[in-house]
Simulated assay, not measured.
Amino acid sequence: MKTGDQNLVKKINKCIVLHTIQTKSPISRSQISQATGLNKATVSSLVTELIKEHLVHEIGTGQSYGGRKPVMLYFNQNAGYSIGIDLGVNYILGVLTDLKGHIIEKIFVSLNKQDYPYVINEVIKIIHKLFRQTPKSPYGIIGIGIGVPGIVNREGTILFAPNLNWRNINIKEEIKKEFDLPVIVENDANSGAHGEHIYGAGKNISNLVYVNIGIGIGTGIIIDNKLFKGATGISGEMGHQTIDLKGMKCRCGNKGCWELYASESALRKLAKQIPVFRNAENIGIEDLIEKANQGNRDVISLFDRLGEYIGIGLINVINTFNPHLVIIGNRFSLLKNWILNPINRVLEQRLPPFQREACSVTFSELGIYSCALGSAAFAVSSFFDKEKVIVE
C-alpha cells in the first residue's frame, strides 16, 4: 500500500508540474516550486522525467535576481500532433495541429452528396493526406477528433443527423479501424464551443453558449468551465426549439424549428426571392455579402430579418442558461457587421434588463475553424488525460 500511495502522489504531482509548464512557460524550476508549493527536489526530479519523455524542453537561462541564472523550461508543443475534422453538411474541413492548437496544415473539400459511404471515404482520404503532411515527432499523431452535425451519444455513435439523413452511424469504429488511433466523435457545436473556450472568444469565460449556425443550428454549452452534455450526451439541440407553433415542417419531425428561420439554409431559400438571385443555382454567403456591400437593399433587409430570427432564438438560450457570453460561430461569423445590430435590437426589446446586462453577444474568433480546432483539442486532452489522476 505504501508503494502504491507514493506512486499515486508522484503521478498527481507530475500532472501538476506539467500543467504549470503548459500554462506558464517559459518558467524555471524555482518558479514551478513557488507556484505549486512542491519542494524544489520534487520539481527537479519530475522535470527530468518530463524532459526524457520529450514533453518539456530547456530553452536557456532567464533573468537572475541574485545567484545563478535559472534554466527556463518550455512545453514541447511539437512532441506530437492532433487531427481535427469538421464534418459539415456540404463540406469537410480537416486540420493538423500541434499540442497547443496551432494549425500546421489544413484541407477543405466540398461535398456534393451526403450518402455515408461517400462521406466516410472522403474523411479517410483527408486524414491520410494530413498524416503525410505531419512533421516527425516523438509521439506522432496522438489522436483524431471529429465534429459532426447531429446528435451524438456518449459512446460516439451518431444517433441522428437530420441534415445528412443519417441514423445510428458508428463512424468512430471505422476511423479507429483504419488508423489504429484514439478517436473522439462529438457534436459539431460542442466541438466549436470547446475550441472557442480554450483558443478563441471564450477564453477565461466560465459560462458561455456557442451557437453554431451553418446549414442547421446547434449549441455547445460551457457551464463552470465544463462542457455540459446532459444525461445521455445529447444536450444543446437548440436549433430544434419551436419558434413558430404552426411553422414549416423540419427534418427532425418537429414544426417551426429555429433553424428553419435563422440558418444558412433559411438564408439561401429567402435569397432566391431577391430579383438579382432569382435564377441563381448556388447562392453563397459571400455572394450575398458582396451585394450588401454594394448597397443592395433587398440583401441588407434579408440580413436584418435573419438577425431578428437569430435574436428570437437567443432569448430562449439566454433565459435558460444565463451565460456570461454567447458566441455566434461557423459561417455566420462572416455576417457580423450585418446581423449584430438586429440581434441586439431584439434582445433589448424582449429580454429582462437583468438578463441582458449580464450577457454579451459576440462572434467567433476562430471563424470556420472553431469545430475543427475543438475536435483536435479533444484528442489532445484525451492524450494527456491518460496520465491524469482524478480525485473525487
Results as ranks from 00 to 15, higher is better:
Asn296Val: 05
Ser206Gly: 02
Val389Cys: 03
Gly150Ser: 12
Val119Ala: 02
Ser191Tyr: 03
Cys15Gln: 03
Ile184Asn: 07
Leu111Cys: 03
Pro323Ala: 13
Lys125Arg: 08
His128Trp: 01
Thr232Met: 04
Val71Asn: 10
Pro70Phe: 00
Ala161Gly: 11
Asn13Lys: 05
Ile142Tyr: 14
Asp287Leu: 07
Asn212Leu: 07
Lys129Trp: 01
His54Pro: 00
Ala292Ile: 08
Lys2Ile: 15
Leu208Ser: 11
Asp5Leu: 14
Gly94Arg: 12
Ile243Thr: 14
Met1Tyr: 10
Asn212Ser: 13
Leu93Met: 06
Ile327Lys: 07
Asp115Gly: 03
Phe160Trp: 10
Ala372Met: 05
His54Tyr: 10
Thr97Leu: 09
Ile234Ser: 09
Ile103Asp: 12
Gly295Asp: 06
Leu245Val: 08
Met248Glu: 15
Asn78Val: 01
Ser263Asp: 08
Gly37Pro: 07
Gly295Val: 11
Ile124Gln: 05
Val389Phe: 03
Gly192Lys: 09
Leu8Gln: 02
Asn282Glu: 15
Ala41Lys: 00
Asn168Leu: 04
Ser30Lys: 00
Val361Asn: 10
Leu335Lys: 11
Thr3Pro: 00
Glu186Lys: 08
Glu155Ala: 12
Lys255His: 13
Thr20Asp: 05
Leu260Asn: 06
Phe75Tyr: 15
Gly329Ile: 10
Ile234Cys: 14
Leu55Ser: 06
Asn282Met: 10
Lys388Cys: 11
Gly233Val: 10
Ala231Thr: 09
Lys125Asn: 12
Tyr81Asn: 00
Tyr65Ser: 08
Ser382Trp: 09
Leu111Ala: 01
Val299Asn: 01
Lys176Tyr: 11
Gln294Phe: 04
Ile151Glu: 14
Gln114Phe: 01
Asn322Ser: 15
Trp338Gln: 01
Ile222Met: 15
Cys252Phe: 00
Ile126Gln: 03
Ile289Gly: 04
Thr23Gly: 02
Ile289Asp: 07
Leu288Thr: 04
Asp244Glu: 15
Lys40Glu: 01
Ala271Ser: 14
Phe277Tyr: 01
Tyr91Phe: 11
Asn121Cys: 06
Leu340Met: 13
Ile51Asp: 02
Ala376Gln: 01
Ala201Cys: 05
Asp385Met: 12
Arg154Cys: 05
Gly67Pro: 03
Arg331His: 07
Thr42Gln: 02
Ile274Thr: 05
Ile32Trp: 06
Ser360Ile: 02
Gln31His: 12
Ser360Pro: 02
Arg251Leu: 15
Ala201Arg: 15
Gln133Lys: 14
Ile289Thr: 07
Ile27Gln: 02
Leu50Trp: 00
Gly230Val: 09
Leu38Phe: 00
Pro182Ile: 02
Glu281Gly: 07
Pro149Thr: 12
Ile328Phe: 10
Ile283Leu: 06
Arg154His: 09
Trp258Glu: 04
Gly37Asp: 05
Ile339Phe: 00
Gly60His: 14
Ile327His: 11
Leu208His: 04
Leu245Phe: 12
Phe277His: 04
